[in-house]
Amino acid sequence: MSYDFNIRNALVITRREVNNYFNTPIGYIFLAIFVFFVNLLVFLRFWETGRDLRLLFESFNIPFLIFIPAITMRLWAEEKKAGTTELLFTLPLSLVEIMVGKYLSALLMLALSLSLTLPIVVIGIFTSSPDYMVLLGGYLGAFLMGAAYIALGQYISWLFQEQIVAFLVTALVFFLLYATSLLVTMLFNITFVATMFGWLKNLLAFISLSWHYESLSRGIFDSRDILFFLMFSALFLFLNWRSIENSR
């Protein structure tokens, strides 16, 4: 079992993966759809609500549920379907380097998608007087939340051979995570559940990603939220690594 890690090796994989995204029109289409939906959600209310750029950060939640499964579905499932995983593992690269390389490529896609929403920020700056720290916190929060989703999506991608199945399962899991608060509400409205497992309520609310994103998108940099996102990402990268190790 090799634990070697060289960032240059990881970047080789990153470059290969980024090229794969953009060698077909799919990568462009995903990005275009993402930015279109973000614009749609923002401009539904932007001019009527005092041009508040916090709308932008609120609007990331829903498009992420579809966009991130779309970019993570192929990370492993495509390799497994094409039978190139074994070939990949024979390269003089450690598993950690391969995994991190793939993860970085998805992060680059995420960063690119977020950067495409910058025209909205420029409009906000031009027409209003936005809070720059809220902007910084909002983008940092969106990136960290996206990074956590990607780690989970990459793990799920390893579990399936078909990209479409990976996409659907990832989207479903994301939706469940996003809607944890709604689920908790429904569950704890049942008296029996509320009585027996009342202590679990706060814990369940705590694992909702959007719950942690909220503070950052208001310009509040809280170590708990940042730590949660980092640990969430690290946990699923670890599970991905362990899962691959088990199957080799």
Binding site: L136, R218, G219, S223, L235
Partner: peptide
């Protein structure tokens, strides 16, 4: 992961850098 995340609830650093400064 669960315990560190949950325990961090009590020990934290926070900077409110927004204009509103709630």
């Amino acid at each position: 992961f669960l315990s560190v995340s949950y325990l961090s609830y009590g020990v934290y650093i926070r900077f409110d850098l927004s204009d509103e400064g709630q």
